[in-house]
């Protein structure tokens, strides 16, 4: 479904991704963890070409992503949920959800709205269809953002720290929605520091440090006997908090 081959990324002199190779299978729930600045966001952003790799290849569903085809390939295959929600503030919630389906996926207004209400139900916010995003709490905004991603009906959804901007009380409401999604066939790539979520949902966990994947395995493997010392340190710190 997603394949990164020898992906390198430089920001100027800074070598941020160092020969990253990663394959995500269809329907797989992949969680990426690692310390700040280790390249987790950059890895995920290379998957939908928000960042273009300096070298290496990205395949989505067998098609190599290029600057030329990225708009189409991304539109047909990928959605993304951001740390800062990034809802469109000048549109109602409903319009946020129907914009891409009507303008990009050839749906009629009625079809798009039906879809929107369906996914508003999924995230439990049907009654917010007609309000503007800025009037909602962070947790609600993020659930709307997830509904917006679902409305594209793509097979892959990327999450870059979806709960990191939320206050502690609202984190769980977003995680609950994501846990429910995990039962679907959707391929999910999730950067998160929520270890409970990782343990419950992930098929595989990838640990990044210094722009490289330094360990990967099942959640059990990770949380019971990780091999790498960096991973042990990191998990020790995070789980002790």
């Amino acid at each position: 479904m997603i394949r990164l081959e020898h992906v390198n990324k430089f920001f100027g002199e800074l070598h941020v991704l160092k020969d990253v190779n990663l394959t995500v299978a269809e329907g797989e729930k992949l969680v990426i963890i690692g310390p700040s600045g280790s390249g987790k966001s950059t890895t995920v952003r290379c998957m939908n070409f928000l960042e273009e790799p300096t070298s290496g290849k990205v395949f989505i569903n067998g098609t190599e992503l290029t600057a030329r085809n990225k708009t189409r390939v991304v539109r047909e295959n990928l959605s993304m949920v951001f740390q800062s929600f990034n809802l469109y503030p000048h549109m109602s919630v409903l319009r946020n959800l129907t914009l891409a389906p009507t303008k990009l996926h050839g749906k009629s207004k009625a079809q798009a709205e039906e879809l929107a209400y369906h996914y508003l139900d999924v995230v439990g916010l049907r009654d917010k269809a007609h309000v503007y995003p800025t009037t909602l709490s962070g947790g609600q905004q993020q659930r709307i953002a997830i509904a917006r991603a679902l409305c594209a009906e793509t097979k892959i959804i990327l999450f870059d720290e979806p709960t990191s901007a939320l206050d502690p009380e609202t984190i769980q409401e977003v995680l609950d929605v994501m846990i429910r999604l995990a039962d679907e066939k959707i391929t999910m790539v999730v950067v998160t520091h929520e270890m409970g979520f990782a343990r419950q949902v992930a098929d595989r966990v990838v640990f990044m440090d210094g722009g490289q994947i330094i360990e990967e395995g099942t959640p059990e493997h990770f949380f019971t006997h990780p091999e790498n010392e960096r991973v042990q340190q990191f998990l020790g710190k995070i789980l002790r908090n």
Partner: peptide, 22 residues
């Protein structure tokens, strides 16, 4: 008005938290 509505929900810097028990 919009700013007032936004700032009612604080956006703290990322907090690394202990994971919820599955």
């Amino acid at each position: 008005r919009a700013v007032a509505a936004v700032s009612s929900g604080p956006i703290p810097r990322r907090v690394i938290r202990r994971g919820q028990k599955p």
